[in-house]
C-alpha cells in the first residue's frame, strides 16, 4: 500500500511539473524514478521512452505504466498513471471554471517565457546523461545523427524511425556483433 501511494505521489509530482509534453518530463523522471526511488535504471527509462513512442497513448502515461508495472504489477501501473493525470485534472478544471483567458494574462506569459528557458537547460542536462549510455559505438552514433537531422529538417513521424531503428538494431546486433561493439 505504501509503495502504491509512493508511485501515485511521485508520478503526480512528475505530471504536475511537466511543461510542454512528454519529452520535457525526462529530467523529472530521471530525478524521481532513477535517482530518488531507484525504480528503474537510465537504460530502462530509455527503453520505455522508445517503446512508448510507437504504441498508442501519450508518452507520459505510457512511461508511468511501464514504471508502475515494473514496481508493483498492474495495480502499480494504475496508481502511477492516475498520479500522472491527477494534477492535469485539478489544474485544468480550475482554469476552465474560473480563468477564461488564462494564457493571455501577461504574468502567465512572462512566467512561461522564463520556464521555457529552464526547460531547455533541464532537457539538455538530461539528454547528455542518456547520450553517454546509448551512443556506444559507430553504429549507434550514425543512427543518432541520421535520425536527429531528419527529424529536425523533414516532417517524418517518429514511429517510422523507431520501427527502422529496432529492425536495424536487430540486424547489427544479431549478425555483426559477437558480444562486443560494432566496428
Amino acid at each position: 500500500m505504501k509503495e502504491l501511494l509512493e508511485l501515485f505521489l511521485a508520478f503526480a509530482r512528475i505530471g504536475g511539473l511537466t511543461f510542454g509534453g512528454g519529452y520535457a518530463m525526462l529530467p523529472m523522471l530521471q530525478r524521481e524514478v532513477v535517482e530518488n526511488k531507484g525504480w528503474a535504471t537510465e537504460a530502462e527509462l530509455m527503453d520505455y521512452y522508445a517503446v512508448g513512442q510507437c504504441i498508442p497513448g501519450v508518452i507520459a502515461v505510457n512511461t508511468a505504466v511501464f514504471v508502475g508495472n515494473k514496481v508493483k504489477g498492474l495495480i502499480g501501473a494504475i496508481a502511477a498513471s492516475l498520479g500522472v493525470v491527477a494534477p492535469s485534472l485539478v489544474i485544468i478544471v480550475a482554469i476552465a471554471a474560473f480563468i477564461q483567458s488564462f494564457s493571455e494574462l501577461e504574468i502567465v506569459q512572462n512566467a512561461f517565457a522564463g520556464i521555457r528557458v529552464a526547460v531547455c537547460v533541464l532537457i539538455f542536462t538530461a539528454v547528455v546523461k542518456l547520450f553517454k549510455k546509448a551512443i556506444i559505438d559507430k553504429f549507434t552514433f550514425a543512427l543518432f545523427a541520421v535520425v536527429f537531422l531528419l527529424s529536425i529538417f523533414v516532417d517524418v513521424s517518429p514511429i517510422i524511425f523507431v520501427v527502422a531503428a529496432a529492425v536495424l538494431g536487430i540486424i547489427v546486433h544479431v549478425f555483426f556483433l559477437k558480444g562486443g561493439k560494432a566496428k
Binding site: 527503453d47 521512452y49 522508445a50 542518456l130 551512443i135 549507434t140 524511425f161 523507431v162
Partner: peptide, 8 residues
C-alpha cells in the same frame, strides 16, 4: 538501436 533513436 532504439536507445540511439530515443536520444536523437
Amino acid at each position: 538501436g532504439l536507445r540511439a533513436v530515443s536520444v536523437a
